[in-house]
Design a protein around this nucleic acid. Structure first.
Lengths: 199, 199, 199, 199
DNA sequence: CTGTAATCGAGACGGTACGTCGAGTCTTGGG
DNA sequence: CCCAAGACTCGACGTACCGTCTCGATTACAG
């Protein structure tokens, strides 16, 4: 059922390439990341990269998948659910902010986002393998709250997810403001209550 | 007050360069845009570009300013204010969506966003010259509504702006969903009312 | 005396490789001839070539032997001997010229000569298997004439052979002049009579 | 009349490239000579080589011209003329043999000959710039002898030149025999007297 | 008649070099 | 001093082959 892999691809090389790519994008930044340097760092011929990936962005994407351990794929990842939606969302957003502020992830994630912006094929892949599962996870938490009567019954969960996480991502990408825990709180509170006055 | 500008810079060359840059980024995309091709198209020596701009992104940014006619700078641009905030916002978001779907602006704007993501200096410039004025304009409209009691008194207007426009920009950049007028409406309604049920 | 050939080598592959090599060198020229293209054309794994030949030149050399049907080996090839040395030599040189002018043999023979120039091992092989037998054949004809008193008694036959055929080969390799039947005649006459005036 | 050179070519780079090429072909041989290594040794970008020369062979050819100091071009080079043709030719051939046996010139000259064999354009250049002038020089000496009645009146001097020098070049290229002073003598004597018995 | 070991087609691998593109710098000559 | 033009060094591109190395799948010999 599994032992015979049709491909004669060298798994060790694959991992070396992805690891090298991830390290290098941290060290030199996305603009200066070259296939040549990835190959050199990985101890691999350039052809081995060109053979299996169509673009630099695709390598980076796979590197991401490897680093994330493909968590999104295994089982059903879930957001915390204490019953208190507001608190849970704040917890999650604060954690996200911490990750975005982590220099180890900053450059690689910016690089990935850049590639997605310009490469529709990669965007589709991203949507399918990374963003999709994450979005599902977020929607599951919101649906749970919805069932508990904490969210509007007619709420479009996709819009809801984007309204909570979108501003955060934007601020980070455009550096249009500081990413602080307070910002996370404010975002959650405002999204839940809406801009209009209550009562 | 003397007529002599300190700089002996050739205005014709400047415009030719910016025009060529804007045209080329539409035609070949951002990744394949080269300083050499800009110089060739503009009928200009490469040195003339390097003399006046520090980076490809800076050229692109100035090209944008030129194309936008520096609207943001002239006078006090304003969002429509009919008194009906929800309707006004929907109008504006629908217009924005139309612009983002316009192939003439799609590639150049993606290019600009990409540069901003990786170049903090450019991000600051963007924030000051383009995003800042736009944000002020949006906040003015919201403040007007706030005074009219249509928005919560303690609302953080920056967060509010990001919550309305951020998801839109994100969907566009990541191609994570279609940009339709209905999406604009849904976004405005959800943001104004909040995720929680009313009553 | 046993029927078993020590080698389990595949004769069909061997012939396919040599034929492919000979064809390809005609088609693409020596510089662009690659082991990979030979293997592909022959429908053979690269390893099969590397297993049996030490170098591209060696393959080419064997290809030559195959094409020539190993004539030089079988029996005692001989130059025409009508008793008229001058006429016989002219006949032979004219035939040689025709062969050298034949596009089917031009490129392959140039290729072989090139390899010989740079590879002493191949040069030795060439000398033993191709040039040697040919030279013997030529010397036999000259010796016959010498016995008939038509050539100087103390003549060094090796020098004689080189003086008749050398200039021809040189002109062909360096393209330093046209290879015409008249040239053949002139060469033979001059060599036989010498540069000095007779009487 | 001369100061303004139309080309803005860098003479220092040109010399560095040719010198590097000549050195490298001695050191690593023709087969392993790469444009890349020439550029590296010369401290020059590869593009500068590709900009000015169409092929590796053309570089090598120019390197030869530079090394030979373009002697052939300056003035009227001449072979020794003591009145004794046989002695003079022996002197010259012996000197040639010594040169061909000099390891400093062996590889480069083989390389040049190889290129000529495969590249008609280069062959023409060779004929015009190197072989032609040399051949003229040789013919001048023979013509002088001819006037003195030492050579046949109807002798084709081109054929004569090829008959004396051709065998030598061939033996060297094909390694079909040792290049000794005795061989030079034998060659000259046989060519002058012819293969036929005198009287 | 059946292992078993060499040979085969296939093609991935780590490399080297190719010939091209563009970056950013520098030089020349003209206005 | 600025400009158009374009040569320069340098680094990377993506491709072609090198010679080596597995991988099954024949295939011909030996037991």
């Amino acid at each position: 059922m599994s032992s015979s892999n049709a491909s004669r691809r060298n798994e060790a090389s694959r991992r070396a390439i992805l690891t090298a790519a991830f390290e290098l994008v941290q060290e030199v930044g996305y603009a200066k990341l070259s296939i040549e340097s990835i190959a050199a760092r990985a101890g691999v011929g350039k052809q081995t990269i060109y053979r299996w990936w169509p673009s630099k962005g695709a390598v980076l994407f796979d590197a991401f998948l490897l680093m994330l351990g493909e968590q999104a794929d295994t089982g059903e990842p879930a957001l915390p659910d204490t019953g208190d939606l507001e608190a849970d969302l704040k917890t999650v957003l604060r954690a996200t902010i911490e990750e975005l502020n982590d220099p180890r992830y900053d450059e690689p994630m910016r690089a990935l986002n850049t590639e997605i912006v310009h490469d529709p094929a990669l965007a589709a892949l991203y949507s399918e393998r990374l963003d999709g599962p994450m979005r599902e996870m977020k929607k599951r938490r919101l649906r749970s709250a919805q069932r508990a009567g904490q969210l509007a019954e007619d709420l479009d969960l996709d819009v809801a997810v984007e309204m909570v996480w979108g501003p955060l991502l934007n601020r980070w990408l455009q550096r249009s403001g500081a990413l602080t825990p307070e910002y996370a709180d404010s975002l959650v509170e405002t999204a839940l209550s809406g801009l209009r006055p209550r009562h």
